[in-house]
Amino acid sequence: MSRFKKQGSKEVPAISTSSMPDIIFMLLFFFMVTTTMKETTVMVKKTLPSATEVVKLEKKSLVSFIHVGPPMNTKIYGTESRIQLNDRFASLSEIQEFVAKEREARDEYDRKFITTSLKIYYETKMGFVSDIKQELRKAGALKINYSTRKEIARRR
């Protein structure tokens, strides 16, 4: 009766794992390319306003960030809106120095392409924002980007 029984062993052949490194490498390269390292810890609240007509910020290396908003740690720093430059809170008058330092850090050729990205908490009052903008004007950082979340555009 068992004429059609398979002749060989019933063991499942082992799956070759020799191509595993290749697959892993592929994934690795994907993440290596898409990675941007986090440079600073943001110490202020960072809910940004949303907008539809946004453009992508190109050339991350030519962007310097200014974070503005009420501090996350309200017990120590209070609830008043603060400016964060790099890793610490700063006052308005320090913006010019910050811009100058950022400019120093770039190549001479790239300096005119520096964009200042303003990451401002959405409930901040405009008075404070315009004070910052005045400082930026004085410092000569004229290209700015109001950082926003992207909202899906609706057709009207």
């Binding site: 941007t36 907008a51 910020l57 991350k60 990205s117 004007r137 004229l142 290209k143 980007n145 109001y146």
Partner: peptide
């Protein structure tokens, strides 16, 4: 290592040119 350090967010925003003082 790269999985952990990756942040995928793209920065978007509204570009404006300020006028010189």
């Amino acid at each position: 290592f790269f999985l952990v350090t990756t942040t995928m967010d793209v920065d978007t925003g509204i570009i404006r040119q300020l006028s010189p003082p």
